[in-house]
Design a protein around this nucleic acid. Structure first.
Lengths: 238, 238
DNA sequence: ACCGTGCGTTTCAGAATGTAACAGATGCGG
DNA sequence: CCGCATCTGTTACATTCTGAAACGCACGGT
């Protein structure tokens, strides 16, 4: 049963929504303003979804949404002002959806379900008590995506965070040529400057830890003028 | 049998109400002023509901209500001044209802029952929100959310309140990467300043108590540049 | 064989993190 | 009301990680 929290200063609407959403099978808790929400957040696990009114006494909903961005809680903004400008600001702030008042409770319900469904795959929440470790395996390489622990052919290998990220990218796309630009794009999310050699250094450092003979790599290969390829099985020794 | 406490300096009204409410099946205790109430609170479990006169000698009822806000006691304010302004102030102060004097005892009774009913099952106001689980367990970690007692693998561990809060957040979202901002948001409810290291220090202190080898944590892991992850099962070679 | 470019490697400084020391805040007992 | 102990955030310093720069080898083309 997903948990929803509702923040709205209109007591009548609050009661109405709480009742309706409970009938629809959600665990609903309502708050009148930001401070009440903060207290709840301080003492409880975060909800699966937050319904947040824009117009609130004191701190407004947009500010709250911005503040809560890092928590990874899906947010649906509610607002009496249905103008597009609000729409945009609301979504920029990290909200997952936006619903102008007045709205039909059914539409709200539909959007709630949509957002929850969209978030489902990643959400760990307080759902599965025995969540299986997320593992990434290729050949003798095994990465635990939760703990960032790594082993090669059963032997544990100590990688730094940067090396782990790089190896992860290679394991996700084995046998695929990856240009330096592509790698940097995935690592940093922006384009590299012309003389950026940081990838080369990272590759070298990674090789030192996962290749038995770093001078003659069998898995993490250089393609001159192109980039790097990762071969899980290792290149056959001629 | 719900317990009601009444604070009013008018002895005649006090006796009248006490008698009437006892006949209606409540356990009623009356006090003349704030200090008397404080003494009682100091030595007894809080009542199920507090009836609080606004006009009191010494500290007035609004101030008391504000002071008691954190205790989560439902409050009904009583006042001789029936103006709206009082109404609002009274409710902002955290009171659940308001009754202008003079009032019919039956109306008071009705409001008492309404407040108790509203508070009972699933609170919709700004008080204690989610019905909390008594025990939070993940792997070998056990937190008693009532007593704040902690044990790891059956062994009791002494944690300070701050350490407990931090561990609780991690247990609520195991295997989830939590940024420093997210942690601070949950802990303090506001955004952190750029050079705030308090989270790091807390983590270090917590590690010292729950990790067998704090220098090489197996459960509370650092993800450089990202934040921290808690892994109940411990870090193993994948 | 010569030369320019690409790449591996080392070095070094800045950033991120762990941790100890310190100090203000708080609560308690006397 | 006054010490005393505890807790908690701040600060400073040590350690580790990371990218920039420098250097030199290797490759490929002439």
């Amino acid at each position: 049963m997903p948990t929803l929290w509702l923040v709205d200063d209109d007591a009548a609407l609050r009661d109405l929504l709480v009742q309706y959403l409970r009938e629809q099978g959600f665990a609903v808790v309502a708050f009148a303003d930001g401070p009440a929400l903060d207290r709840a957040l301080h003492e409880n696990p975060p909800p699966d979804l937050l319904l947040l009114d824009v117009m609130l006494p004191g701190e407004d909903g947009l500010s709250i949404a911005r503040r809560l961005g890092g928590l990874g809680i899906p947010i649906i903004m509610l607002s009496a002002r249905g103008e597009d400008i609000d729409r945009i600001v609301g979504l920029e702030v990290g909200a997952d959806d936006y619903l102008p008042k007045p709205f039909n409770p059914r539409e709200l319900l539909a959007r709630i379900r949509a957002v929850l469904r969209r978030r489902e795959p990643n959400t760990v929440s307080h759902a599965a008590p025995v969540a299986p470790a997320r593992l990434l395996e290729q050949g003798p390489f095994r990465l635990d995506l939760d703990t960032h622990a790594v082993s090669v052919a059963g032997r544990p290998v100590e990688l730094t965070e940067g090396e782990f990220q790089l190896l992860r990218i290679f394991l996700e796309q084995p046998r695929r040529l990856l240009s330096r630009d592509a790698l940097l794009e995935r690592l940093k999310g922006y384009e590299r400057s012309p003389f950026d050699r940081s990838i080369d250094v990272r590759v070298a450092r990674l090789r030192r830890k996962i290749e038995s003979d770093p001078a003659h790599p069998r898995h993490l290969l250089t393609i001159r003028g192109e980039g790097y390829v990762f071969v899980p099985e290792g290149r056959e020794t001629p």
